[in-house]
């Protein structure tokens, strides 16, 4: 109960900050300080959002599908890589630098290549999403595996546990927290990654929609789609939080106890 009060004030501050920015933005537009076609007012953005809503939903479905498939494969890949690198130290030494290297390649630079190699369909988008999402998962899981308490591992060894049992009883559950931190980042990367790959060629999706409205100088629709992408990312991160609470009931029970 005690926690509730500061929570409300926290939200109050952030909500008033957003409101203040919107008011300044709207007045700058209404007073004609900036040309209307350069910077559409919040009201016009909202109107564009409503009128374009059915079209936006159609494109969202495509982007979300690419993001979801890519994220799913990214999780699977991250899982396999982290487990294998944890099990065999040689592979860790060999591949960890390479995994880090893949993250230094700018997404925008590699996307056109993927289009050239794999065409305009879904495949290059999914591949790009996999490249951007597997990394936080791999690193999160690997850190979790490696931070397992050596005494706990010794205890299980003393009980006669095999390596596989140590993995499933200690390492994997102990890495859940870090896994979900990684997943939260990956979930937002998935949408952004899909959008970026759609910019460079494709037949549908929010990225394709973006390039179209940009060419038509419809800045109000541009803002509407940006808003939508942020909203989807936030929603996904919230969903990850929910999933974490379901999958890690011991943390939830603790919080109830202390409240």
């Amino acid at each position: 109960m005690r926690k509730k009060y500061p929570n409300i004030t926290n939200k109050l501050w952030s909500v008033s900050a957003i409101a203040a920015i919107l008011i300044v933005w709207q007045s700058v537009c209404s007073l004609g300080v900036v040309d209307a076609f350069m910077l559409p007012s919040p009201v016009r953005v909202c109107r564009a959002f409503v009128s374009e809503f059915p079209l936006l939903m159609e494109h969202s479905a495509i982007t979300l599908a690419e993001g979801a498939v890519g994220l799913g494969l990214g999780i699977a890949l991250g899982f396999v890589m982290a487990s294998v690198m944890d099990r065999f130290d040689v592979l860790y030494q060999a591949f960890y630098p390479l995994v880090v290297l893949t993250q230094t390649i700018p997404t925008v630079a590699i996307a056109p290549l993927l289009v050239l190699w794999f065409g305009y369909e879904m495949l290059p988008k999914v591949i790009l999403v996999v490249i951007t999402t597997f990394f936080p998962i791999t690193v999160g899981l690997l850190t979790g595996f490696r931070s397992a308490d050596p005494d706990a591992i010794d205890l299980l060894r003393a009980m006669g546990a095999k390596k596989r049992q140590i993995f499933f009883y200690i390492k994997l559950p102990g890495a859940m927290g870090q896994f979900f931190s990684g997943l939260r980042i990956s979930a937002s990367y998935a949408v952004v990654g899909a959008v970026i790959s759609e910019w460079l060629g494709g037949f549908g999706g929010l990225g394709v929609y973006m390039t179209r409205v940009k060419k038509a100088f419809s800045f109000d629709k541009m803002f509407a789609v940006i808003l939508l992408i942020s909203f989807i990312s936030l929603l996904l991160m919230k969903a990850v939080d929910r999933l974490q609470k379901v999958c890690m009931p011991w943390e939830r029970d603790l919080r109830q106890e202390t409240n």
């Binding site: 706990a152 205890l155 003393a158 009980m159 006669g160 546990a161 559950p173 102990g174 859940m176 011991w250």
Partner: peptide, 19 residues
Amino acid sequence: KPGKVSYMLQKDLLLPYRT
């Protein structure tokens, strides 16, 4: 040969994620 004699440490080593 581990797995024959049981073992308990100063740290209780109860796994926090198991009931």
